[in-house]
């Protein structure tokens, strides 16, 4: 089933945790989203795949509330993100974790401080002091409890990625956005990272949205897939449905063929 621009994509059963309603967004005259609708439900694992520049990260940042739509609305549990009261905004932020494409680690802080800073900012300094055990538990879960005093520049790329994931998860969020969690990593480390994301989701339970270009990892992660092309987002269903999806662009992207309809993009 093709979910063209403007079609509502139902990816779960209960009330949506995030809903995009007729959202449009563009940069410098280039339209990324037009009248786009999306519903994301509690417990979903949605994977966005597609060529570079197709708007995957933009869509992710829109859902996270980091970008504002030029028209339409992004709703968090039925409330418009742009008009949330301070209390709801805080609630929303405490429920959201995000791994950035380049990890966005605070390079002047140690591994431990990177996580403590998150609690300080969202819950306050005292809570950050009281929740030292939560920080250690999270770092242990991602296997970084032995490098607490290291700075991000002193640990490997895979460890930086794990630190980014730990920072996204330290508040035990209900909604986690992963922007290309395996970018720049070797296949073995990529597989380990994705397995860790799935393990942590199983352990703590969360709705996750992942952006990736790696189809193998997408299949591993996906409850549902959405294949993104510039100006168009196709709902392709589960991993198996996506593999069998009829659109030639999707097939070309999956196979990584040089020739095909995507060549002109």
């Amino acid at each position: 089933m093709v979910g063209l621009k403007g079609e509502i994509m139902d990816v779960g059963k209960d009330a949506p945790i995030i809903e995009l309603k007729s959202t449009s967004l563009g940069f410098d005259g280039h339209e990324v989203l037009k009248d786009f609708d999306l519903k994301l439900f509690e417990g979903d694992s949605l994977v966005l795949v597609g060529p570079s520049g197709s708007g995957k990260s933009t869509l992710l940042k829109l859902m996270a509330g980091l970008l504002k739509p030029q028209s339409g609305a992004v709703l968090y549990r039925g409330h418009d993100l742009s008009t949330l009261s301070k209390k709801l905004r805080e609630e929303h932020l405490a429920e959201v974790g995000m791994l950035f494409q380049q990890n966005a680690l605070f390079d002047s802080m140690t591994v431990f401080e990177n996580l403590r800073f998150v609690i300080e900012e969202v819950e306050g300094i005292q809570q950050a002091l009281d929740r030292k055990d939560d920080i250690l538990e999270t770092l242990e879960a991602v296997g970084l409890d032995h490098v607490l005093d290291h700075f991000p520049s002193e640990i490997s790329g895979g460890m930086q990625k794990r630190l980014g994931i730990a920072r996204a998860l330290v508040l035990k969020p209900r909604l986690v956005f992963y922007d290309d969690p395996t970018a720049g990593l070797d296949p073995i480390t990529s597989r380990k990272i994705v397995s860790m994301i799935l393990e942590l989701q199983k352990k703590w339970g969360a709705t996750i949205v992942t952006v990736t270009n790696d189809m193998m990892r997408a299949y591993q992660l996906a409850g549902r897939c959405m294949v993104c092309f510039p100006g168009e987002f196709l709902k392709t269903g589960s991993a198996e449905d996506t593999k069998a999806f009829a659109d030639p662009r999707v097939q070309q992207f999956i196979r990584g063929d040089v020739n095909g309809p995507l060549e002109a993009l």
Partner: peptide, 18 residues
Amino acid sequence: VSEQIDAIRCLGSDPIRE
């Protein structure tokens, strides 16, 4: 460009102030 500013915004903090 390394998205540290976005990460601060993601925590609900104002990057100008922080």
